[in-house]
Amino acid sequence: MTRWGMAIDTDRCTGCGACAVACHAENNIQTVGEVEAARGRAMHWMRIERYYEGVFPDVKVRFQPVLCQQCGHAPCEPVCPVYATYRTPEGLNAMVYARCIGTRYCANNCPYTTRYFNWFAPEFDAPLERQLNPSVSVRPAGVMEKCTFCVQRIQDAQEVAAQEEREVRDGEIKTACSQSCPAQAITFGDLDDPESLVALLARTERTTHLLEDLSTEPSVIYLRGGR
């Protein structure tokens, strides 16, 4: 089987934010403007959190890119009254926009706060509407959305592989965030393939998960420390 996963090396991350920008462009994510962002309505499927270690002037800043953790036991799933969110056979936490009625229970129950609600109908100032990705739906007001691990890129690679009558190769699929990371901090791949780079990284002693004690079984791994 396939279980998509991601390893993020926080020692490599410089906090530049290229991943977050690439994610917006790839996934047609709307921007809500300064005022609404201040009200907590900003939508970033990928965001960068900052942590300060030490006391001034001897501080170190650590960055942590946070996205949907594609949990194996996702707290968001059982609370949806209409089954609009569920786990796919390939280990993605799917969000069926057409099915969503906007109760926002899922976002309330997400310990990583990586689900975003469309408070407004999306508006893309000209000429941005011309760069919308046709392989990704533009979500209307009233619908929940979140990271999909760039499922459109996964499906495209799977289709090309099927046409060439072969398996998808490790490293062939790059999510927008991983593709755009100048420090190559983000690795995407199949955790169930023991040979894949992401599975290799997952086996190192540098592996940690966000809020591990919640037993959500995230598919996103954070690498930190160790030499």
Binding site: A94, V96, Y97, A98, R99, S137, T148
Partner: peptide, 8 residues
Amino acid sequence: IDCMTCHH
């Protein structure tokens, strides 16, 4: 017949 095959 997985929803996400068609809906995403």
